[in-house]
């Protein structure tokens, strides 16, 4: 029964060939450091799911942001768990993505023909840091407010265009409702879209080119 159902679907969807191409690839002998890419992908999906759940109650307005986070933490059932996973998952994701980059660097896996995999990885690392930066403001507490004040002040030191960059980030001269709204938009729409698309490219290249072996005495 299930066999026949599977065959019916497989014939139309090509499930077996997808499995063969995507998962049943030849890989060199690797170690645990090579699991960090999958771990990054898992954390991105986890952040996506918990983030979607948080938007059910979170409101990105100075009048309600702090109170709605307090509501999630203290009154919504398992709100503490969903936000806790999102909070710690964010920190862990930055860590895992960064170590993933270090592994690629120290094993020299960024060389020919994998330059584009490395470059798309750079985009992913920067976008992940961007997620951390924009997400930090959203609870709208003192720490969030002043961290973002300082964080948007830093590009202000760039010669000539600095103050303009700061006001683009803040949506005006001061940190305000506009800052919160645009950080929220970047956090839940712009950056996730960039990350999802770049992950697509990154994985396509990993599947197309395979992964490089650990350097040995012949290299």
């Amino acid at each position: 029964m299930f066999q026949r159902l599977f065959q019916w679907l497989d014939e139309r969807l090509g499930l077996t060939s997808i499995h063969d191409v995507v998962l049943d690839r030849k890989v060199p002998k690797v170690n645990w450091w090579f699991t960090l890419g999958s771990a990054s992908l898992f954390l991105f999906l986890l952040q996506g799911v918990t983030g979607i759940f948080l938007t059910v109650y979170y409101v990105p307005s100075p009048d309600h942001a702090y109170d709605s986070v307090q509501y999630i933490m203290n009154e919504v059932r398992f709100g503490w768990l969903i936000r806790g996973i999102h909070h710690w998952g964010a920190t862990l994701m930055v860590l895992v993505v960064f170590i993933h980059m270090l592994r690629t660097f120290f094993y020299a896996a960024y060389k020919y023909p994998r330059e584009l995999t490395w470059l798309s990885g750079v985009v992913l690392l920067l976008a992940t840091l961007g997620m951390g930066f924009t997400g930090y403001l959203l609870p709208w507490n003192q720490r969030a407010y002043w961290a973002t004040t300082v964080g948007t002040e830093i590009p202000g030191t760039i010669p000539l265009i600095g103050p303009f960059v700061t006001s683009v980030l803040r949506g005006g001269a001061d940190l305000s409702a506009l800052t919160l709204a645009r950080f929220f938009a970047v956090h839940i729409w712009f950056l996730p879209a960039v990350i999802a698309a770049t992950i697509g490219l990154h994985l396509y290249l990993v599947i197309r080119l395979g992964i490089s072996h650990i350097p040995d005495e012949n290299d």
């Binding site: 059932r77 398992f78 709100g79 768990l81």
Partner: peptide
């Protein structure tokens, strides 16, 4: 572990 609390999370206001 993640799925069951998620259901409670969504239903929460209706259960108050």
């Amino acid at each position: 572990i993640v799925g069951l609390p998620a259901i409670g999370y969504l239903l929460s206001p209706a259960l108050e």
